[in-house]
Design a protein around this nucleic acid. Structure first.
Lengths: 257, 257
DNA sequence: GATTGTAGGCTTGTCTACAAAAGACGACGA
DNA sequence: TCGTCGTCTTTTGTAGACAAGCCTACAATC
């Protein structure tokens, strides 16, 4: 029995994927995906209460699988539980934004350093596929899809490192970041920049294919969401000294873009 | 309602702590802690099946809260679920060890860079408390407690950064690391070194109080678990190129300790 | 008029029970 | 003796129901 488990990390990832293909989606998984989507689309906003009964009849499932899904999302950092009072979508403070962006950045850098002279060429396919989907969505004018596939592209980029736990942590932070992006209404700004957005990601991929980590890191540095954060910065509470300092550094460095 | 949530990250952490004090641990929490402990003590070993029915009657709870606990532990990286086949304790491969140790190291370095000229002096108390408990356990000759509080010390060290998400990710990796340490039986080696172990951590704390990040990082570098990993390295499957390379680098650098 | 006590509704936490699917074991046939 | 098929057990996935706790609104009293 245990012999089956003597697989490499890559194999296990494959198994996990295979599992999802041929073994259909437990209701918990489905529910988790559904609630996650509701958070991303802004149907559920930070601070909103998530009432179990309402969701069960909304999703057509019973409470146990829903509760399991909520636990998963809680671990993912999208929900917080207040004992006996229910769960709410995480309220985002400036300090939270600081945490999310700094850690995500660090993980991305680590991934690039680990994975950029790409060993396994097949891994690049994932990046290319994500980029292609981005481009298609941009042509269709679907801004939500563009940002969604944009996150997928970055995730694929991190996946180049072949480091499952790194990727998982990155995925979690990306989720929280998407939650943040629902906060400001100036998604319009991104919409008019759809093609430029795709182009920037394409340049990133080219740098990766080129094989020089430094180039990729430089591209990532100018790739950040400075404008987004700066626009958001003033509207949030929870202004920690560390977060303020980070914001200030970001503001002074924003001249490059 | 939302006004209550306009709290800083620090405040939210405080609320979370307060919550635990006056709000009785849910059965899920208790179950998660219990199963985690079973994994740490080696009662459950990597690859072991975790049967729900057995655990429910063992813990005296019903399945729903147990299942929620299992989901949490799954997110934590201690369990994996095989749909329709049950959950097992994660089988550890060499690649997994590589992932765990490299990512943990990276997070720890980030924490030191962020937090080492310590801003909030009260945060040091947590480190000092953990160290004191370590020392006490060492005097009592309780090896398990020493390693346990050792992990607590490192966690407190990471906590100096005031970066909740960083700390959470680190905690998760520490859990997986403790799982790994159940793999080799030469815990004896550590036992005879109990006091030396405490002393090393004390030196680390001194470096932190000194306020120079570079010193702390240097201390951490020599603080690793090289001998542990090297002893473990040969016995594991899942030998990825990346993992092999990492192991080789570790072996050549191990002359310092 | 303000404050405190109380009752009601609502939400969560937990349990028991049922159904379906996968794996294991044994028997039968080649 | 080996392979295959069928049944049987085990285990998970899911549903519904019950009990306990919290919040809110109303009323009575100071």
């Amino acid at each position: 029995m245990a012999a089956v488990e003597q697989a490499t990390g890559a194999d296990r990832a494959a198994v996990r994927t295979a599992r999802r293909i041929l073994a259909p989606p437990s209701l918990s998984q489905l529910a988790a995906d559904a609630v996650r989507a509701m958070i991303f689309t802004g149907e559920l906003r930070p601070g909103d209460r998530v009432v179990e009964n309402r969701l069960t009849q909304q999703l057509g499932i019973s409470r146990p699988p829903l509760r399991e899904a909520l636990r998963v999302l809680e671990q993912e950092g999208l929900l917080v539980q207040q004992p006996r009072r229910g769960v709410i979508v995480v309220p985002i403070t400036l300090h939270d934004v600081y945490e999310i962006f700094t850690l995500r950045d660090q993980l991305e850098r680590m991934a690039v350093e680990l994975g950029v002279p790409v060993r396994d060429a097949t891994r690049l396919d994932r990046c290319r596929a994500a980029l292609a989907e981005m481009a298609e969505a941009a042509r269709a004018g679907d801004a939500a899809a563009v940002t969604g596939h944009g996150f997928g592209f970055h995730l694929a980029l991190v996946g180049l490192a072949g480091h499952g736990r790194l990727e998982e942590a990155y995925r979690s932070l990306s989720s929280q970041m998407r939650l943040c992006m629902g906060l400001n209404q100036r998604a319009r700004r991104d919409r008019e920049d759809l093609l430029g957005n795709v182009e920037r990601h394409g340049a990133l991929l080219a740098a990766v294919e080129d094989g020089d980590p430094a180039t990729v890191l430089a591209a990532l540095d100018g790739h950040g969401h400075r404008t987004f954060v700066l626009a958001l910065g003033d509207t949030l509470g929870g202004r920690t000294p560390a977060a303020e300092a980070w914001l200030a550094r970001l503001a002074t460095a924003s001249s490059t873009r």
